[in-house]
Design a protein around this nucleic acid. Structure first.
Length: 268
DNA sequence: TCTGACCTGCGA
DNA sequence: TCGCAGGTCAGA
């Protein structure tokens, strides 16, 4: 559920609170979210380190602690909470950070689809595609990505090795905004359609970041509050409701075991 | 390229 | 009680 706008919202909130903080103690649970390190080792290696920066690539959030980089993927239900107030569920807290100033930070993940790594060097993310918020995301590069593949356009938008950061909610919204059917093939799009799709990717993601992300289920900001973008969705979870453009009912089908929402009339 | 498994809470 | 939500990955 947390896609690029949600992870970026979390990063923007974490940074001013925790940059410069020294990790006094880390408490971990033995859960399968730890990928390349045992939970107790993760805690041991981060103890005493200072958080120098918090960055993001695609859906990954990276805590730069000098020669230790803690990388988080929030999966479906992973969130960071700065205190035990709103949305805090103690049984689903897998990592607790205690800082020397008394601040705390909790990583909570109800469904345990989240993933955590610890690296000595800054990770390269070379298996990931272009993050649409970076300078590499140009119309020219986007055009090349589409032309190289004969792939269903919705799957392409969600394919992290092509574009890093888009998930099911925003893929649906982007295609509606661009007026492109989710059934089209990527290398079948006309030049003007690609240009429209490119603008839609930028527009939809930027709008969602301004609204602090979409809270459909578990996603919460660092303060435990819901995002506000769910009020502005045009097709996602609007089955049989009127299309905002043409009043036809929004359709829902399952593609690749994922729900796809679209307007048959507006998306060609 | 597609499907199922992972995982838990929620709603029908 | 069961289906659904969906990000990722392994396996067919």
């Amino acid at each position: 559920m947390p896609e690029l706008p949600e992870v970026e919202t979390i990063r923007r909130q974490l940074l001013p609170i925790y940059r410069g903080e020294i990790i006094d103690r880390v408490k971990t649970q033995k859960v399968r979210i730890f990928q390349n390190i045992a939970p107790e080792e993760f805690a041991k290696l981060l103890k005493g380190r200072k958080i120098l920066d918090i960055t993001r690539y695609g859906k990954f959030c990276i805590f730069n602690c000098g020669s230790a980089y803690a990388v988080f993927h929030l999966g479906m239900s992973g969130i960071f909470l700065k205190d035990k107030r709103d949305s805090f569920h103690p049984q689903h807290i897998h990592i607790q950070f205690h800082f020397s100033t008394g601040k705390e930070l909790y990583f909570q993940d109800v469904r345990k689809f989240g993933k955590v790594w610890l690296f000595e060097e800054q990770p390269e993310f070379d298996k990931l595609g272009i993050d649409p918020t970076t300078r590499k995301f140009t119309l020219n590069n986007f055009q090349k990505l589409l032309n190289l593949r004969q792939m269903n356009i919705k799957f392409l938008l969600m394919n992290q090795s092509v574009l890093a950061g888009i998930g099911n909610i925003y893929a649906n919204e982007i295609l509606f905004n661009a007026g492109i059917s989710p059934f089209r093939k990527s290398n079948d799009l006309k030049e003007e359609e690609i240009a429209g799709l490119y603008s839609s990717v930028r527009l939809i993601l930027n709008q969602a970041m301004k609204k602090f992300g979409t809270s459909y289920s578990a996603y919460r900001t660092v303060s435990g509050e819901k995002g506000k973008n769910q009020r502005f969705l045009k097709v996602y979870q609007r089955t049989n409701q009127e299309c905002y453009r043409c009043s036809n009912p929004i359709k829902k089908i399952v593609m690749g075991s994922r729900s796809t929402f679209y307007c048959e009339n507006c998306q060609k």
